[in-house]
Every structure is written in structure tokens, then in C-alpha cells.
Amino acid sequence: MHYHWNWRIYWQQSPDGSGTYLHTLFVGLGWTLALALLAWAIALLLGIVVGVIRTTPLRWLERIGNAYVELFRNIPLLVQMFLWYFVMPELVPTALGDWIKQMPPPWGAFVPAVLCLGTFTSARVAEQVRAGINSLSRGQGMAGTALGLTLPQTYRYVLLPMALRIIVPPLGSEFLNIIKNSAVALTINVVELTASARAMQEYSFQVFEAFTAATVIYLLVNLVVVLLMRLIERKIAVPGLIGPSGGPAPAGH
């Protein structure tokens, strides 16, 4: 193999005139993070709402929630990405569709990508939220209700604070997933980290350096997220409880 290694490539100018290749990669990282964080906000919000309605005593609400989760969980992410990008603007009212199609780059691709990742992940978050709520004893909800709290108040003050604490670890992995899944957005021309690495490879022919950098950056981001999650877990631990949401056991009596 006659591969010419060149680790200094990162500091060379990219022919697209935007700066060094390293700069290209960091801009890509910026888009990856923006995509992941915005989609995560949508995923958490929708996921909590859908997860909650799947546990309420109202059967028709539960069915809607179940259908939502099945829909977004069972269609491949790549297909969903294409649906949001190519099909969604055709399905909404014409005026809105035209407005979406005329959004200047990169927003025309970025917005559908955020919506796609957000809804896709919200189905998975909803599943966790439902499991978290169902893992609480039935008596917790009853105790809230018996005190005169309404159903929304019972969720808000009694059930969700505990359920969300319990599911912090799986939510952490979902956040890691959303970062990885954001690479799928390159198929609709969002120039996130993976797309930036590919651009670097195409301009410089340094395929190993380009994807080594991308790999290292993904790993570092993962590491930061994992450390942050640990911090959060420690912060929200409930004194006197053992298990995923509990802190260290009390010392003696």
C-alpha cells in the first residue's frame, strides 16, 4: 500500500477557502452538537408527554401513545430522514411546504434533520419514561391522588420526579445514540462531523487522517457526555434510597 501519511494535514488550508481542515472538522462538530442538542430537547419533551399518556387511566390516550411509539420506532432512521426531507414538505399545506423548500442552506436540511432525530428519539424516550413510571409502586400515585392532587399534579410532583431519576442512565445512552445517529443527516446534505470528515477526505485524499480525527472527536464527545451523566446522577440521587436513583447508603444508625 502506497499511502502517504500526513498528520500535518489538519493545519493545511482546505480548498473550499473556509480555513484549515481542522477548522472544517470543528465546524462539522458544531453542527453535530447543534443537531443532537436541539433534537434532544424535542425528544425529551415529546418523549415525556407520550410516555406519560401511555400510563394514564385513559385508554384512548394510551392507544395514541402506543401508535406513536410503534410508528417512530419501527421505520428505519434513514427512511424517516428521507420522509422528513423529501416527503414532508409535499404533505403539509402548500404555502408551508414552499416556505420549507425555500429555506436557505443549511437550514433547509438542518430543520428536517432536527425534527427527524427528535421524533425518532422521542419514541425511545417515551418507552423509557413509561417503564420508569410503571416501575414505581401503584401506591405512590394513589398517595398523591388521596391527598387531593389532580392527575396532572400527581404526575408533575410525585410520579415524574422519581421516574425520571430512575431512567437517567438509559436516557444518557439515548443521548449518546442521538449523537451517533446525527451522522445519518449527511444523507440529506447536513454537513455535520462525518460529512466534514468525508469532505476533508475528498479534497485531501487523506482518508485515514480524516476519519481518525472524526473517530477521536466522537469518542471525546462521548467521554464528556458520560462524565456529565455521572455528575447528574450524583446530583439527583435521593438520600436513603439504594438503586439507580439512590445515593450512598447512610452510614450506620
Binding site: S137, M142, A143, G144, A146, M162, V238
Partner: peptide, 12 residues
């Protein structure tokens, strides 16, 4: 007022 077998205080 209601009191349950398993107390059902809110742990958090």
C-alpha cells in the same frame, strides 16, 4: 386522610 400499608411517602 388516607394512610397506606407501605407508607407511600414521596422518596425524593
Amino acid at each position: 386522610g388516607m394512610v397506606f400499608q407501605n407508607f407511600e411517602l414521596f422518596p425524593h
